[in-house]
Nucleic acid binder design. Structure first.
Lengths: 246, 246
DNA sequence: ATACATTTAATTGTCTGACATTTTAAATGC
DNA sequence: GCATTTAAAATGTCAGACAATTAAATGTAT
């Protein structure tokens, strides 16, 4: 592991890259201990604070974890699904909010991805998944629910749909798409009538999965997409008008 | 922005979290300048190196960028698609390699997601996208290509298929799924015969998109999935046998 | 001999202070 | 009025020190 002496970039960034490459390439394996900060400082010919900045960069990506004390140090971290979910969601959320992604585009992406899961979910859904979906549907039907709680339950329902496919890689990939929509969905005011419509569609989806009927699920999902898009467009139109006026 | 004095976690982690929350919540907006390191050190009542460690954590997530010199400092960074792609790919690749994801599961996820794009891609593909696909197919048909180059071209083809949908959010979400498969695909030895089969299927997909025929594209993609799975299973079986023997 | 307490050494976490480097705005000189 | 110089502000880097934590090694008493 060496760094380029001609490179003008931050030393800590270069060192982080060198170590990151070693991890990604499999040169360093999970739970392997990195040299101590002092040793790394020696190897790279930099000071300890510089090494520490590099290690913190890697820690921020969950690539390493550190432990204090004797026989402590920095270790290559096994990236868990939970950690990856978290990063995925943060990144996806920021990407949407910072780049002025329209409701339409985000909605299209989300439902396209969910449709990818439906056939698998229809084939594999467990009783557990169905129970989760029914429970969320039940919650959504309760009166007096705040819009935010309704949204959170909506997200939970959709995650159950995705998890039903029984493919952890799919679940990971979709976590970002589903969760990142929440801030956009939270802008919507859900009337009693729209909630009724959504609950009905959710029920149709759950019924279809229970019956292992992919086509029926797909159709209901399509209708849900159209309806969500409709709600979102109303909100966006109102917001734009408000902006124009005041 | 405050930190909990009772918290035993690293100060730099706490400070990073406080600033990250301010960014994600929209409390700090894109291109807004953070206080200088000295000011932050004052505010949080810590030393400058500690603040710097926190800032490096945020920089590793592309949440901030720093600029040296007078009127420089740390600024909230607009997360670009490219930066997000990069992180997405690193994370997805590590997640697969570190958690012993089987070829089957990764393959299923990848093709399920790609199928989500096909109808959109058939409707919207530009001449540009088609040209890219044709160029990659042409490259793949050339004799004497190394397996790795063939794989890289395969990835480029699939990314064109995804980009054809004209939805940047989809492209972002799928970058990880498509690229993370490459290390697994690289384990495959592509015989002349298998390359022929793959090129033929790629051609069918490109033809279908050109004709704006989603169903034909979907069918070819299904066959490609089955074929890829077949190749992958052969490799895995051989590898497992080698392991058992020696 | 075993259980428990103590010491010790290794390592990360944090602080202080200094200097180097980079960049821009303002001051200066022509 | 334009070019050059200067000064100031900020990040980047270094050196050295001390605090806090942890597990192994050691010692001690039952």
């Amino acid at each position: 592991m060496k760094i380029d002496p001609d490179n003008k970039a931050d030393l800590s960034a270069q060192i982080a890259k060198a170590i990151r490459d070693a991890i990604v390439s499999g040169d360093m394996i999970v739970d392997e201990r990195l040299p101590s900060e002092a040793e790394l400082a020696d190897q790279f010919n930099v000071s300890r604070p510089t090494v520490r900045e590099a290690l913190k960069r890697l820690a921020a990506q969950s690539l390493i974890r550190t432990q204090r004390g004797a026989f402590g140090g920095a270790f290559v971290n096994r990236l868990s699904y939970e950690e990856a979910y978290g990063q995925q969601i943060t990144t996806a959320t920021l990407l949407l909010s910072m780049n002025g992604i329209s409701f339409d585009v985000a909605c299209e992406a989300r439902y396209a991805l969910e449709r990818a899961c439906t056939p698998l979910s229809a084939a594999r859904r467990t009783a557990d998944i169905l129970a989760t979906m029914r429970a969320e549907i039940h919650r959504q039907a309760q009166p007096g629910l705040s819009d935010e709680t309704f949204c959170a339950s909506d997200v939970a329902f959709h995650r159950a749909l995705v998890d039903g496919a029984g493919n952890p890689v799919l679940s990971y990939q979709l976590a970002g798409a589903v969760e990142a929509m929440q801030p956009l969905m939270n802008m919507i005011t859900f009337t009693a009538r729209s909630r009724e419509a959504i609950v009905a569609l959710h029920t149709r989806i759950a019924d279809a999965l229970e019956a292992r009927a992919p086509d029926a699920a797909q159709e209901a999902l399509h209708e849900l997409e159209a309806y969500t898009l409709h709600l979102g467009r109303d909100v966006m139109a109102t917001r734009d008008k408000d902006r124009a006026n005041g």
